[in-house]
């Protein structure tokens, strides 16, 4: 096989996927459009998980909380404070980035299971604060928002706004992981000590990667604020982080675009299965086990290996 056939094929697949996301909503009923909007937003969260888990070799369990911080700030600013939703979103992303930077300072000292546990604890702190700081966050009841501007109230226009935003974010993330800096991250993933020996400031690189992942989760969180117009502690809960990680794993860790497949598969399955049975969580669980056994590298990862095997 020629070496540039793969990228060309990949490019074609990405364009085809983007085209599908652009056109399918036109023929879908409005409810499915809102589901698709959610898929796009969660894909961004999954991609930012992938930046750390797939490209840097550090699996985070706090990006859901970072995502939620952005949602909280956006909703709080625009409803309780009465400010412009767009300023609120900017502040939300900023807050998420700052929180991620703080977390990064603590988390980059660790790796492996310690990294997992530390980020889990950090995420739980955010959740605890949101739950107990009733005067600001509304506690268990959350905050009802007023984020979505009237011109975006309908599902379709809002979908396309999200679509454009996500397309831009995806491109930036793709550039980020394929930049020379992104290569150093992969170097750190494969051998931290060698990268250090080569003279790279490993801690700094990991700090930047973590903060950038936080920034992207923050963007997803701000979009989610506009999508849901409501925030409560369940948005910053551990399940949110786990969901993001599961999407990244299902799609294929270290593939970036796999996140879209993962988000589509999980949110789609959640909605389709829960139509038929209360035990939809069991079905989801079984689906994960099946994926992990037969395609441990995720759906997109599996396809890639399959293609490579056919040609090789």
């Amino acid at each position: 096989m020629s070496t540039d056939a793969m990228p060309r094929l990949a490019l074609a697949a990405v364009l085809l996927g983007a085209l599908a996301f652009a056109l399918v909503p036109l023929i879908l009923p409005t409810y499915q459009v809102s589901i698709l909007t959610e898929v796009l937003i969660y894909a961004v969260l999954a991609m930012s998980v992938d930046v750390l888990a797939g490209y840097t070799g550090r699996t985070p369990l706090c990006l859901g909380a970072v995502f939620g911080v952005s949602t909280y700030v956006t909703v709080y600013y625009s409803s309780t404070f009465g400010g412009s939703p767009y300023v609120g979103m900017a502040l939300g992303v900023l807050a998420a980035t700052v929180i991620a930077a703080l977390f990064a300072l603590l988390a980059i000292r660790t790796s492996g299971v310690y990294f997992l546990l530390l980020t889990l604890a950090l995420g739980m702190i955010v959740w605890g604060i949101c739950l107990r700081w009733t005067s600001i966050t509304g506690g268990e009841n959350g905050i009802r928002g007023n984020v979505r501007p009237a011109e975006l109230a309908a599902h379709l226009p809002f979908y396309y706004v999200v679509f454009v935003a996500v397309a831009v974010v995806t491109f930036v993330m793709w550039r980020f992981v394929h930049s020379p800096f992104g290569l150093t991250l992969r170097g750190i993933r494969d051998s931290e000590s060698r990268m250090r020996a080569l003279g790279y400031n490993v801690s700094l690189h990991m700090f930047i990667a973590f903060t950038v992942a936080g920034l992207f989760s923050g963007i997803a969180g701000a979009l989610y604020a506009m999508f849901n117009d409501f925030v409560s502690p369940s948005t910053v809960a551990l399940t949110q982080s786990v969901e993001g990680l599961l999407m990244a794993i299902t799609g294929g860790i270290g593939t970036l675009f796999g996140s879209f497949i993962g988000a589509l598969a999980i949110i789609g399955l959640e909605n389709a299965v829960s139509l038929y049975t209360e035990r939809w969580q069991t079905v989801l669980g079984v689906a994960f086990i099946v994926i992990m056994i037969f395609a441990p590298e995720g759906i997109l990862g599996g396809i890639k290996t399959l293609l490579a095997r056919k040609r090789g």
Binding site: E140, N141, G142, R144, G145, D229, F230, S232, S234
Partner: peptide, 10 residues
Amino acid sequence: ANTGLAVANY
């Protein structure tokens, strides 16, 4: 209450 408040807002 939190589920009710979310739906009420919708």
